[in-house]
């Protein structure tokens, strides 16, 4: 009985975590290759879901074609233009001006979304109609399963691309040591552009998966951005794998904490407390712990660069 709920929580935590991982990986990639801490990441995700909805309505197309179209739009705007117009000119002034600019960009996107699509939440179609599958005593929704499957396929494809192709490895090299990459003749600027395009693809995918459950809403980018940031810090900013695991970790911990804190039985008494409102504190504590004791992230590596 207890185990069944644990597994069910785990599955839904993994489903949520898989989406968080998509959000965090792109965030970490941008940081690694170009030193961009993108505080507009959450808004990129949020507005991507509105773009998908808009395309569906405008062109009378289904969710999947709208997603692919939105992906190209997002790659152009949040990949190419974002890099060319905001990141390239500002990066030479250091991290801080760019951070402030991305915060500003996030606010602008949020407000524009509110102006164009309104402040009300909008429903968002899901990839599959949810059906409950029963394995033994375990009930799993197909919505969760599809989310996990899609996210894992995307992540696996990304990993394969990064590790198994020369371009992917050149991007990794750029992320690990830009100066050396340049000395070896790697087209660093192009590799950075690729990471921006990949990030745009990832945010659109995250939007596709997260919005059916959480609804399209102009203000939800704040939460997404925070999660991407937290996942990247917890897992390790400087590694794709770190951000990935950070995303999963937050999804799972969040679910488990809320569940198990809802009824905390004080030992030797019959008092049961509902501490679930404090469940948010657990990922936060983890975050603080990581910052204090392992600032490179649980799965990150210490920076060592020379030249």
């Amino acid at each position: 009985m207890q185990l069944q709920f644990f597994v069910q929580l785990l599955v839904s935590g993994i489903a949520t975590g898989a989406i968080y991982a998509l959000m965090a990986v792109g965030f970490a990639l941008l940081w690694q290759t170009s030193g961009t801490i993108n505080f507009a990441q959450g808004e990129f995700i949020m507005v991507s879901s509105f773009i998908i909805l808009w395309l569906m309505g405008l062109l009378h197309i289904g969710l999947v074609p709208a997603f692919f179209l939105a992906m190209f739009i997002s790659m152009f705007i949040f990949g190419f233009l974002f890099k060319r117009i905001l990141v390239d000119p500002l990066l030479k002034y250091g991290d801080v001006p760019l951070i402030i600019a991305t915060i500003g960009l996030g606010m602008i996107i949020r407000e524009l979304t509110r102006i164009f699509w309104g402040a009300n939440a909008l429903p968002f179609p899901s990839l599959v109609k949810n059906k409950i599958l029963i394995f033994g005593g375990l009930r799993v929704g197909t919505a969760d399963l599809v989310t996990i499957a899609v996210a894992i396929v995307i992540i696996a494809a990304l990993q394969l691309f990064l590790n198994k192709t020369f371009v992917g490895r050149s991007m990794e090299a750029t992320a690990q040591n830009q100066d050396v990459a340049r000395i070896l003749g790697i087209n660093v600027d192009r590799m950075i552009l690729y990471t921006f395009l990949i990030n745009a693809f990832l945010v659109t995918s995250a939007a596709l998966l997260v919005t059916p459950k959480l609804l399209a809403k102009f203000s939800s980018g704040e939460t997404f951005g925070l999660i991407a940031f937290m996942a990247a810090i917890i897992g390790g900013f400087n590694q794709v794998r770190g951000a990935l695991i950070g995303g999963f970790l937050i999804g799972i911990i969040d679910n488990l904490a809320k569940f198990y804190l809802a009824r905390v039985h004080l030992p030797f008494t019959d008092i049961t407390l509902n501490l679930s409102p404090y469940a948010l504190a657990i990922p936060l504590l983890l975050l603080i712990g990581v910052i204090l004791f392992k600032p490179e992230g649980i799965f990150g590596r210490k920076e060592e660069r020379s030249i």
């Binding site: 490895r169 990794e172 690990q176 040591n177 060592e304 020379s306």
Partner: peptide, 25 residues
């Protein structure tokens, strides 16, 4: 070709893949 001061490898890539970058040009 230029071999800079300090460590100039990509620690997370394999030796083989590091070496491969020597041939980009």
């Amino acid at each position: 070709a230029y071999v800079p001061q300090g460590r100039n490898i990509f620690p997370q890539l394999s030796v083989e893949h590091n070496l491969e970058f020597g041939g980009i040009s």
